[in-house]
């Protein structure tokens, strides 16, 4: 009967033949679509309504009616770097998974480690970007552009941070040799979450940064 539970855990005895945990993470990801859709709607609705503070175009320098000078807010090179980091991390984690499934522990550690580095630097990029924006006068309180920008990208950043913690745990597990091919599903689930965070950024990058 212990075998029965073991089989259940690996999706061999479920009614659909799919693993419970993998189906659960997909369900969760589906639910998260609505979470980010609401935040993106909020950003798009508020994009153009800011009575004070930096604006009206966050891409250009601007002089407010009261004569205040503002530098352009958004820096495309910096955020392009962040985007590239996140895209590459998606590639790296899928390579890590392929190595985990083949039982290549060294490859797993290497690619997962690179994924972690990318995620870590993405979060660093965002911290730098946020503090830089605040320095230029864009804060949560300054106007609705700032409020909806920080809320949307901030919650995305929180998701990345949680993903980094999750993957770091798995890297340590892998280092201790606890992710054999039979347990590669542990990594697959975390990787699905990580890819989802990446596709959300794929939407955020043009919608928030490129489109004026």
């Amino acid at each position: 009967m212990a075998d029965h539970a073991h089989a259940l855990e690996h999706g061999l005895e479920t009614s659909t033949g799919l693993d419970n945990r993998k189906l659960a993470i997909w369900t969760f990801i589906g639910s998260e679509c609505l979470f980010f859709a609401s935040l993106i709607s909020n950003f798009l609705v508020h994009k153009r309504t800011w009575p004070s503070g930096p604006g009206p175009f966050p891409h250009d320098a601007w002089v407010s009616p009261s004569g205040q000078h503002f530098e352009p807010i958004i820096e495309i090179p910096l955020v392009t770097l962040g985007t590239a980091l996140l895209l590459f991390s998606s590639l790296f984690v899928v390579l890590a998974l392929a190595n985990a499934q083949r039982g290549n522990r060294k490859g797993l550690l290497l690619w997962l480690g690179l994924t972690l580095l990318c995620g870590f630097f993405f979060v660093g990029m965002q911290v730098y970007e946020f503090s830089h924006f605040v320095h230029k006068g864009l804060t949560l309180k300054s106007n609705l552009y700032g409020a909806s920008f920080f809320t949307l990208t901030g919650f995305h950043g929180t998701h990345v941070t949680l993903g980094v913690i999750w993957l770091l745990t798995l890297w340590i597990e892998a280092f201790r040799g606890k992710i054999p091919p039979a347990k590669s599903l542990n990594l697959e689930i975390a990787a699905l979450y990580w890819h989802f965070v990446d596709v959300v950024w794929i939407v955020i990058f043009p919608v928030v940064y490129l489109i004026q």
């Binding site: 369900t27 639910s31 979470f35 909020n42 508020h46 949560l140 409020a147 809320t151």
Partner: peptide
């Protein structure tokens, strides 16, 4: 699964309005 994330976001925005001084639902701030 599809409805609760939306109220979660609405409540988060309200929380930011009340705790962190944003103006999502405050007409005087746009």
């Amino acid at each position: 699964l599809l409805a609760f994330p939306v109220i979660t976001v609405a409540l988060i925005l309200l929380m930011f309005d009340r705790f962190f001084g944003t103006h999502f639902f405050v007409p005087s701030g746009g």
